[in-house]
Amino acid sequence: MKNKWIAYPYIVWMILFTVVPILLVLFYSITFRDGLGITFTLENYKRFFDPVYIGVLVHSINLALISTAICLLLGYPMAMIIAKSPIGYRNMLILFFVIPMWMNFLLRTYAWMTLLERSGLINKFLASLNLPAFNIMYSNSAVVLGMVYNFLPFMVLPIYSVLIKIDKNLIEAAEDLGADGLKVFREVIFPLSLPGVVSGIIMVFMPAITTFVISRLLGGGQFTLIGNLIEQQFLVAGDWNFGSAISMLMLVLILLCSSVMGREDKDEGGVGLW
């Protein structure tokens, strides 16, 4: 490791933009400021365990789990189809997946609003066929749709990159030994692709549970998810201490999830994407 100093900028970067901010959030979360000065307290954390806020958390976890499950169900077959395509075609498919991500995420979510509205494009089309209107705007379904749409590439890409690396000889060997297609998938392909699946799940679940833009735009402000609650503490109520406490709790929750998933990952002997 002769060139260790190359890593210094990265270390400085990490300290400035990851470690220090987290420490600041931690500090805010365990303090309370009044006219007299700053006192240490766990009150901010205790406040979160009120049924109102726990309800917000449960709702957020539910929506994030549903979105992750849908992304997995849609994303896995998609990744397989892409991985099995001839190479030139495959790169084109991947490109199609990535191009929308070059566009701003807000813009894409706004586009869904115009599509789903009562007098939006989808309903105009349905009406022209004399079909009944389709009203999911401002509901849980719209929020889940927005999450799945925005986060699907984060599921497909890791699974895809694991799938294309699977040694074809293993599959052929299984087939030679008399396994049918389903069995090959169940016994060989799927277990080998697990690291990709785990990465995909984490990469979809994390942004899904903390989003506040999708729930605001497609949920019409009727759904307070945990992200909205945090945003509200900082922007409206001005209660930075409570907002920080919720952020810390979320951080712990996400760390727990990823370490559980990560362990699974290692047991399977795979190499995670990150």
């Binding site: 109102v52 806020y53 309800g55 917000v56 709702h59 402000g221 009727q222 759904f223 307070t224 909205n228 609650l229 509200q232 503490q233 409206v236 109520a237 001005g238 209660d239």
Partner: peptide
């Protein structure tokens, strides 16, 4: 009182 308004608002939204 802003904190009380905020709590009430959250209860409405939830």
């Amino acid at each position: 009182m802003v904190k009380i308004y905020d709590r009430i608002w959250t209860e409405i939204k939830v």
